[in-house]
């Protein structure tokens, strides 16, 4: 077992690196899959591990997209003039400006989204259960509406970013695939460690019985704020990359897309099994495959099929694949009766 584990992870890493060459026609699809994986894993940090079902994590995705774009533009041009040009002006970016802007933008997106989560958390973590879900959903919708009325960042038109340098757009596809993959892999490694810490045990306690956790003296609010901020950090970066990948985005359908990606990430986690490390990843892959297959072969009925999947998951299959496995095979998850070593019967003399 101990030898198999590193081999498994190495093989997986090799597959991640090779995937866009194994299926070159699916490069953009694979990049999108990484968005699903990152958003599902971060959603599970609060939804699965801490018991706070946020329907507003898409806020950090949209905010990250805008922050990264604005920073990327601002290092070269006046943002107001840039967004106001509406195709009339010509704004050129050198390769250095493009990549430097993106790098700074992504860092800013991560850090500022973490800050937004901290402030929002102060306001919203007083709400429990479905009220928290509705509160966060409201915050995300409000954010989208506010941004779409903010002319400085392009209002309802959104922002058009510079195109990836060079003539061959396959390079751009590969670049964004790997960028997402790097964030996803770092997130996975981080969460693998994070879920082994005392901190993670404390947020599990908050999920299972917050009142008990308080009575035991846990710093519940502080832990909730930290967890959501870390999640928002990664979501913000993913949103930022998405902005550069899409080139043009607008506030309501792309950035703060509450009814699409905002819900999809929740369904991914439920499908795979919340509160587990692998559940969100498996769920994201399954969901993405189902979504693309229905889009291709059931066109016209794709939303019906997707809606049916969501309803079935939520009503009949809330524990998801990993939860179902844990119920069927509890011994795989370490549940067992253990005799005390010194209580083993002594051999008869």
């Amino acid at each position: 077992m101990t030898i198999l584990r590193p081999i498994f992870y190495l093989a997986l890493l090799a597959f991640i690196v090779a995937a866009p060459f194994i299926a070159p026609e699916f490069r953009t699809q694979l990049a999108t899959l990484w968005i699903f994986i990152i958003l599902s894993m971060t959603w599970d940090m609060t939804g699965g591990q801490m018991g706070y079902n946020s329907l507003g994590n898409i806020l950090f995705y949209g905010a990250g997209m805008y922050i990264a774009a604005v920073v990327g533009i601002a290092i070269v041009y006046n943002v107001g003039e840039y967004t106001n040009a509406a195709g009339g002006g010509i704004y050129k970016f050198t390769d250095t400006q493009y990549f430097l802007g993106m790098a700074l933008g992504l860092v800013a997106a991560g850090v500022l989204c973490a800050g937004i989560a901290w402030i929002l958390g102060y306001l919203l973590f007083g709400l429990r259960g479905p009220y928290f879900a509705i509160g966060t959903l409201g915050a995300a919708i409000a954010a989208g509406e506010l941004v779409s009325n903010w002319e400085w960042v392009g209002g309802g038109q959104g922002i058009a970013l510079p195109v990836y340098p060079g003539d061959d757009y396959e390079n751009a596809k590969l670049f964004f695939y790997y960028l997402f993959a790097i964030v996803g892999v770092i997130l996975f490694i981080f969460l693998r460690w994070f879920y082994s810490t005392r901190f993670a045990a404390a947020i599990n306690a908050i999920r299972d019985d917050e009142e008990k956790a308080e009575a035991m003296g846990l710093h519940t609010l502080r832990y909730k704020l930290i967890t959501w901020s870390i999640a928002a950090f990664f979501v913000g970066i993913a949103g930022g990359i998405s902005g550069y990948q899409l080139i043009h985005f607008e506030p309501l359908e792309t950035a703060f897309q509450t009814i699409n990606l905002g819900i999809f990430m929740v369904v991914c986690v439920l499908l795979g099994g919340k509160g587990t490390l692998w559940g969100p990843i498996i769920g994201a892959i399954l969901f993405h495959v189902v979504k693309e297959v229905t889009w291709n072969y059931l066109l016209g009925w794709q939303w019906v099929a997707l809606g049916a999947l969501i309803v079935i998951t939520v009503v009949y299959f809330q524990d998801g694949l990993m939860g179902w496995l844990a119920r069927v095979k509890p011994e795989w998850f370490g549940e067992r009766v253990m005799e005390k070593p010194d209580m083993v019967a002594e051999p008869a003399e």
């Binding site: 404390a202 599990n204 009142e211 008990k212 035991m216 003296g217």
Partner: peptide
């Protein structure tokens, strides 16, 4: 009684470490 019912006993104990 209030315990964390979905976790095993050792996990319940480790969560109860004095975070203060």
């Amino acid at each position: 009684t209030r315990i964390y019912g979905d976790m095993n006993c050792v996990e319940n104990m480790l969560i109860s470490m004095p975070h203060r």
